[in-house]
Design a protein around this nucleic acid. Sequence first.
DNA 1: ATGAAAGCGCTAACAC
DNA 2: GTGTTAGCGCTTTCAT
Lengths: 351, 351
Amino acid sequence: MRTRKVTIKDIATEAGVSIALVSFVMNSKADGKDPHRVNKETAQRILAVASKLNYQPNNAARTLRSGKTHTIGVIVSDISNKFFADIARCIEDRAYKHKYTVLFGSSDENPGKLENLIEVFRNKGIDGLIVVPCEGADAAICRVAQENLPIVLLDRQVANTNLSSVVLDNRRAGAEITKALIRRGFTRIEMISYSMKLSNIGEREEGYRIGMAEAGLGGNVRIHQLRHDKLRKIDEIIRDARQRGVEAFVFATNTLALSGLTAIFRNGWRVPEDVAMACFDSNETFDIYKTAVAYVRQPIERFGTEALDLLIKSIEQQDETTTSTRIVLTPEIVESAPPATRPEAKEAIWE
Amino acid sequence: MRTRKVTIKDIATEAGVSIALVSFVMNSKADGKDPHRVNKETAQRILAVASKLNYQPNNAARTLRSGKTHTIGVIVSDISNKFFADIARCIEDRAYKHKYTVLFGSSDENPGKLENLIEVFRNKGIDGLIVVPCEGADAAICRVAQENLPIVLLDRQVANTNLSSVVLDNRRAGAEITKALIRRGFTRIEMISYSMKLSNIGEREEGYRIGMAEAGLGGNVRIHQLRHDKLRKIDEIIRDARQRGVEAFVFATNTLALSGLTAIFRNGWRVPEDVAMACFDSNETFDIYKTAVAYVRQPIERFGTEALDLLIKSIEQQDETTTSTRIVLTPEIVESAPPATRPEAKEAIWE
DNA sequence: ATGAAAGCGCTAACAC
DNA sequence: GTGTTAGCGCTTTCAT
């Protein structure tokens, strides 16, 4: 049978003090505050007994008493998507250092699911939320914020709000990846994107337009918008584009690029000999076969750490002044054959 | 400000009964037991008030009182590995239906990390554990079991124990995937595996040996064992093998196959024209480029559901009789060009 | 500098 | 059938 758990009461008895003092010592230790209130020797003794008995605070009791769960919820589009999986792991690692536990969920770009997940998480009890908004979930997200639950948006923003968020400078990324293609000599460049109304997607499209326009190729601009649940349509888009003499594609997301590559293959074309492509983030397939002429490298780790730090700050601040912070991360363009270009620009931080 | 949480006390007041009765009704409702102890009308009234007030039980209080956290821990090798990520999601989904919360962690094949994760999870409070054992973690795992924390092993077993587990019939998988290659006309087939002492890897190697031997190719058997943190060595292994006229490789894991493919490419060979390969599970790259001649499809979903069900059963059983169950899943061989072979054999379940 | 005591919300043994 | 009550382990005033 499992030996009974050690409680502060046991420590109090063993050290010959009251449980209140034990509690106080355990907590001041962590915070490093109130360093003089307790007799140094008594504190030492208590700490010694605690570690001798291998004391582990009971989370449920602490939560019940304090109302703080030390747990946060993270809702992404799809946790099995590498971009989000990697971010999730960063968040998890960093949360661990702050002694927070993380609950994960996937919305699958479905506002109903997202709303349900928020509900589930709130019932389980969370101190804050990091969420990748999906189309149609704006209302649900704003409601959370209104109820004063700390929240940080990731990867995408919600229009007409000033919630804290961590996003990429997608406009710039779109423009630069387009220019990379242009530098390689392509002029007939089209974009394949989603029909979803998402801030990041929209900005990437805008960036593509800017990149083309600045090179005097505004006339060639063409953006194909697919429904994310009808990816097979990409087949005919690509076939048609090829017939019209399109030389290169900019894919708005990695998933889209993978579907595009599959479609290109089904049509018997080779990459990059017959059709060139550029996309957002790389993946194993692209790495091995040197598929993409260039891609946007998103600073995955910073997405995670910045979002978590923002959230923790928001959770642990005492005062009610809701300062929202927007962090805009800088993209990096990686080109395949010529040595990579690494823009060292600093990021814009709006507070 | 957030409105105060509604508690059973509020319901009791509103319904004009005691909090004990409210508690009792809330719990019997779920279990469906003791259906006659409470007056039907009273129960109805309580339930009505509860839903009117949108009552949500306080988890911390429940946990503090009952000692049950309704949380389980899942430790895999690497949650960013698709095989484990997919299983994790199945476990999560199914756990949700049982009203359990899941905590995830990755050992990175490091016994120290695994042990630490077990410790962390135990401190957070979990009712049970699903773990993919890694080399050198046997002692730590057995200790958990000895302390009566319900545990289920996944994907791999621990030698000389009879802990509950859900694994693939790896010997059979190894033999059949080898035979698939032989049917395609290859005879000079070698295996690339890990040097780690893992039950699943060992059995796959054994299967390969059996497959070769049964085809009278025992003389060609050769297994290359790599350290999982020295994957670059695969380059020279493959180069050397090619020089010796090897026609095909069986890769012991998907990761290994991906490294192998990269190495083959670096050497300028084509797949499957120059070198053929077979592996465990597919992936995007293999799917798109039709790389593997054949692969073993593991029943991902069943790994997850069986493991979770086993664990829940073990957690919720009252009696102390520790019956351990071993579930052996049947592999499916998927061949690329000829229509797939789908063995319909039933699984062996040892209780 | 330290202790006493009041609960946080819930469950379960027992009383009526 | 329903109510009373004693905590689960901890934090946090308020005394001393």
